[in-house]
C-alpha cells in the first residue's frame, strides 16, 4: 500500500514538473515579445542564450527526473514484485495449509468411518458366528434327543413284543399296584363327576 502511494506521489511530482516547464516556456515566450518591442540586437542574443541555457537545464532536469523516476519505478516494481511474491507465497502457503487441513480432516473422517464399518462388520460377523454356533448346538441337541427317543422307542417296541407273551396274570400285580397308587385321584374325579 505504501509502495503504491509512493508511485502515485512520484507520478504527481513528474506531472507538476512538466506543467512548471510549460508555464516557464510561456513566460519566456511572453517576455521575448516584450523585448522585441523595447530592446536591441544584443538583448536578442542574450535572450537566445538564456533560452538555450534554460532549455538545456530543463532537458537535464527532465533527464535526471526521468532517470530518478525510472530508478524509483524499477525499485517500486521490484518491491511490488517481491511483495507480490511474498503475498503469493503466503497465500499459497495458507491455501496449502487449509487444503492439507481439509485433506487431513477428510482422511480422519474416512478412517473413522472405515474403522466404524470394520467394527460393525466384526460385530456382525461375531453375532453371526454366535448365531451359527447356537443353531448348531440346537440341531445337535435335537439330533441327540431324536436318537435317544428312537432308542427308547425301539426298546419299548421290543418290550411290547416280549410283553405280548405276558398274560394278564403275569402283569396283574403291576396293574393292581398302579390302581392302588392312583385310587384316591380316580375316586375324587369319579365323585366330582357324579
Amino acid at each position: 500500500m505504501t509502495d503504491t502511494i509512493l508511485v502515485i506521489l512520484t507520478i504527481i511530482s513528474v506531472a507538476t514538473f512538466f506543467i512548471f516547464c510549460l508555464l516557464a516556456g510561456q513566460y519566456i515566450k511572453g517576455s521575448r515579445g516584450k523585448r522585441n518591442q523595447s530592446s536591441s540586437q544584443d538583448l536578442t542574443n542574450i535572450g537566445r542564450q538564456a533560452k538555450a541555457d534554460a532549455q538545456e537545464k530543463i532537458e537535464k532536469a527532465v533527464a535526471r527526473e526521468i532517470t530518478t523516476l525510472q530508478k524509483t519505478l524499477q525499485s517500486q516494481s521490484e518491491t511490488i514484485g517481491a511483495n507480490f511474491a511474498k503475498n503469493l507465497q503466503s497465500i499459497t502457503t495458507q491455501q496449502l495449509r487449509e487444503f492439507k487441513k481439509t485433506m487431513d480432516l477428510a482422511d480422519t473422517n474416512m478412517k473413522k468411518q472405515a474403522e466404524m464399518v470394520a467394527s460393525q462388520g466384526q460385530q456382525q460377523a461375531k453375532d453371526l458366528q454366535q448365531s451359527l454356533t447356537d443353531e448348531q448346538l440346537k440341531i445337535k441337541q435335537k439330533v441327540l434327543n431324536n436318537t435317544d427317543q428312537q432308542i427308547a422307542e425301539i426298546m419299548i417296541s421290543y418290550l411290547a413284543e416280549v410283553a405280548g407273551d405276558l398274560d394278564y396274570q403275569q402283569q396283574k400285580d403291576y396293574l393292581y399296584s398302579s390302581i392302588e397308587a392312583n385310587k384316591d385321584a380316580i375316586k375324587k374325579d369319579i365323585t366330582n363327576a357324579v
Binding site: 418290550l159 410283553a163 402283569q171 396293574l175 385321584a185 380316580i186
Partner: peptide
C-alpha cells in the same frame, strides 16, 4: 405293555408301563 389307562368323564389316568 402292562398296567392300564383309566378314563373318567373328565380325566385320563395313564398308569401303563
Amino acid at each position: 405293555l402292562a398296567g392300564c389307562v383309566v378314563r373318567t368323564k373328565t380325566a385320563v389316568f395313564d398308569m401303563s408301563l
